[in-house]
């Protein structure tokens, strides 16, 4: 197993390399440059060109890429064109917030989606099942910006249960446990909004797998053994039905991570979303590349985790 994991980790290095090359090239080939923001009527074309040269923006993209790569491998993500801020610090401030949101939504997706799917399969073609099907359909269909606004309207404005945005109460400076509870309170709505469509996907997938598994011969064998229904559903069917769900496990991570961009801007959540969108508009290549790097790593880690979980769940793969 350890050998397998190491092998996969080594294999992911060229993949990440390829992703950075591609995204760098695409970004550089797109029109616009970071200096566009600084142009004012008094600046001369010569000065502008001189700044461009000084920043190395006139070099071919692969030269710029090599320069970027040689810094990144040494752990230096670079500095912003505007303000000369450390990109590592900027991301360091934002990334944990996005991780909190993404992780909560991830846990929620499976903690809610899987039981819903199992319930739908066990009560196949009953009212419960139809109700859950409608819920799932709505869940995948409703766009998150609309659902987010709806939630804010319902739970913040009408009912006043949850704050409409932000991550902490800025008027009360909580510390310690009170701070954790404060963040959790702010987290509820964005986490629900971010996870909704994933809950729907997970529950549909779980349901259909569960329905298939319940038709298997070994379920009939279990019935012939006189096992209780609970033992049949959970011990025999559920574990088998869960194996394909692991695929979604791996896919969910990048899905939620990119979905967080929109959710964060709805709820004013101080995560990577606003940083990323701003960076793209400002042509802050360093930030965009750093975000690409993080996302690519997450995708690969998600896939690797899924593959490891397959082996844990299915003895046929383990051996």
């Amino acid at each position: 197993m350890t050998r397998y994991v190491i092998k996969r980790l080594v294999q992911s290095i060229p993949v990440i390399f390829g992703i950075t090359v591609l995204s760098f090239a695409i970004m550089k080939l797109a029109p616009g440059d970071p200096l566009a923001n600084f142009v004012n009527p008094t600046i001369s074309m010569e000065d502008l060109e001189a700044s461009r040269s000084a920043l190395g923006l006139n070099d071919p993209w692969y030269v710029q890429y090599t320069r970027w790569l040689s810094e990144v491998v040494r752990g230096n993500l670079g500095y912003t064109y505007a303000g000369n801020h450390s990109i590592r610090m900027l991301i360091g401030q934002r990334l944990p917030n996005t991780i909190i949101l993404t992780l909560s939504a991830f846990i929620l997706s499976f903690a809610v989606g899987v039981p819903i799917g199992v319930m739908g399969a066990v009560r196949k073609n009953t009212r419960t099942d139809y109700g859950l099907t409608i819920f799932s359909l709505v869940g995948v269909s409703v766009p998150s910006f609309f659902f987010g606004l709806l939630m804010i309207y319902l739970f913040s404005i009408l009912l006043g249960i949850f704050p409409p945005g932000g991550m902490v109460n800025i008027r009360a400076r909580y510390v310690g446990f009170a701070r954790i509870m404060d963040i959790a309170h702010h987290l509820v709505l964005p986490a629900i909004v971010l996870s909704l469509s994933n809950i729907a996907t997970v529950s549909r997938f779980t349901r259909s797998n569960m329905v298939d598994v319940l038709k298997e011969d070994y379920i009939r064998t279990a019935r012939a053994k006189g096992l209780r229904n609970k033992a049949i559903v959970y011990k025999h069917a559920f574990r088998n039905a869960l194996i394909p769900v692991i695929t979604i496990f791996g896919l969910s991570i990048p899905f939620l991570f990119s979905g967080a961009y929109i959710t964060e801007s709805i709820f004013n959540w101080p995560g990577m979303g606003s940083l990323g969108i701003q960076a793209i508009q400002d042509r802050e290549y360093g930030i965009v590349m750093a975000l690409n790097l993080i996302t690519a790593t997450l995708v690969l880690m998600g896939n690797l985790t899924a593959d490891i979980l397959y082996a844990v769940a299915d003895p046929r793969i383990r051996h």
Partner: peptide, 26 residues
């Protein structure tokens, strides 16, 4: 009663396909 006292206890059944009649993950 059937499930608890009869099936697997007083009557048992063997199926045609031993490949699929056993649970692969137990």
């Amino acid at each position: 009663d059937i499930q608890h006292r009869i099936l697997g206890q007083q009557i048992s059944m063997i199926f045609q396909e031993p490949m699929t009649a056993l649970n692969p993950i137990l």
